[in-house]
Write a protein that binds this DNA or RNA. Structure first.
Length: 147
DNA sequence: GCCAACGTTGGC
DNA sequence: GCCAACGTTGGC
């Protein structure tokens, strides 16, 4: 799950312990949260547009999917004038902090390791902000981060 | 800040 | 339904 650290970082989540992953306005990303995530699933926190772009920590899915409240909020950055309370379009899950890695596993590292060749994240033009990670990739990233 | 790669919108 | 124009993402 990607976020620009200037907007919301792993340190913000560490401080807050738990929070809604709001602001996602892409159908595919929404579908992954709404349809494929379950409470207790692990997720990776990725810093995009950062000085050190890459995976910075681990979190846990802490809620079922529910409508993103910011879509109804006229003053929110991601307000969507086309939705109504009875007909929400955007969904999110809450996430809770698990750990911040002692070192970032950078996008550069992932792209340079053939093991991650087929990972969605490393594909050209891939900018989906919420995307699935295979177990083997997830575990290798954990091992790399903690080694 | 640039810009390539996507995604969305809306005229037709 | 096509596709040009526009908006966004995100690496660099």
């Amino acid at each position: 799950m990607k976020s620009e650290p200037s907007c919301y970082s792993i340190d913000d989540l560490k401080r807050e312990k738990r929070g809604p992953w709001d602001g996602v306005r892409n159908y595919q990303a929404r579908n992954f949260m709404r349809d494929d995530m379950q409470v207790g699933d692990r997720a990776l926190f990725y810093h995009s547009n950062a000085s050190d772009t890459g995976v910075v920590g681990e979190m846990e899915v802490a809620s079922e999917a529910y409508p993103d409240p910011t879509q109804f909020d006229r003053k929110a950055d991601h307000y969507d004038p086309k939705v109504t309370k009875n007909n929400p379009r955007w969904f999110l899950v809450d996430v809770s902090f698990v750990q911040k890695f002692p070192k970032t596993v950078t996008l550069h590292e992932l792209k340079n390791d053939p093991f991650f060749k087929n990972m969605l994240l490393t594909q050209k033009g891939m900018r989906l902000s919420v995307q699935p990670v295979s177990k083997k990739h997830f575990e290798k990233i954990l091992r790399t981060a903690l080694s």
